[in-house]
Structures are given as C-alpha cells and as structure tokens.
Amino acid sequence: MSRYQLDQLDHHIIEVLGKDARVSNRKIAAKLGVTEGTIRGRIKRLQEENYIRFTAISNPSHLGNPRLVLVGILAVQGQVRKLADRIAEMPGIRAVIVTLGRFDILAVGLFDDLESVLDVANNSILPLPGVRHVETSIVVKTLKYNSRIAKIVPSLPHDDSAPRVKPAPAKKKRGD
C-alpha cells in the first residue's frame, strides 16, 4: 500500500467534483482559496492513484428503465476468481464482486428485459463449469443508491466505442 493519504484539500476537491465534474480548475481554486496549479496537480494525482474517475451518470428513465438484477453465485472453491472474470465479460453485467458469505460471487447487471436476465443467469452463468448454484433477484424499487461512491477498477477497460480525447490515466496495480 504505497498510496498517499488524502488530506482535507483532496476531500474538498472530491466533494466539489462529485457534484459537477465540469467545474473549471480556476473556479475550484477560487472556491478553496488555493492556486489553479495546485488544483490541477491534485486532480491529476487523484486520477493517477485511482481515487477518482470522471464519468457521466445517466438517468435510467432515459435508457428505457433497465432492470437492475442481482445474481448470487455459489461456486466450487478454486474456480471462483476465474468464474468472476468470465462473468464480468457478459453482456449487461456491471459489477462482479468476489464475496465471503451467502454467495461466492455477487454479480449485478442492468438488463433491458427479463428475457435477457434469464439468458445471462440461466443460459450463460449456470452452465459454466464450477458453478453450483445461481440465485437471481430483481430489484423492484431502489430506495437509495449513491453512484458517487464506486470502486475504481483500472485494469478493466470498458467497451467504449467512444473516440477517446485523452489518453487514459496511467494504469496502476490492483491490489488494495
């Protein structure tokens, strides 16, 4: 763990950018009473250390209200990590977490319809060698979700077909 510890200024910057990532360095600097160069340097470091990532959050109602689905998987020990990597590649899957407890792997997906849920859970995950049990539950209502807290996973480039305007921040080891 060679990551530097965040100080008050870093936390203030994260707070400002968490509300609006497009505020200029100049405005943040004026607001926090430091120089623009300081802000630029801090943001660069926060990105390089994978503490923050700038992204656009979409409102689900503009995407045809996709269904959020939790898929709990029990697997043969020794196969868990390999399975998790495979599941992470499946269409619609947004999060894959290796867990200890009620499941071995928890996958979370966003699906346009129930048919695609079935397709991933029953036709793609269940037949994988090493999978013992798959349990699907569909979210009927979200009472709280804070999309500003995330896991910044740098080693998994996502399938964006977007023209990249800047090189991605330097990749760091995953291991925290």
Binding site: A56, N59, A95, V96, I97, Y145, S147, V153, L156
Partner: peptide
Amino acid sequence: VDIVKYDFDVSV
C-alpha cells in the same frame, strides 16, 4: 473480498 468489476453509470 475482491471487486472484479464495478461500472455503474446509471442512477436516478
């Protein structure tokens, strides 16, 4: 134990 993927860009 390990977060393999975490890519949520959808939220109300």
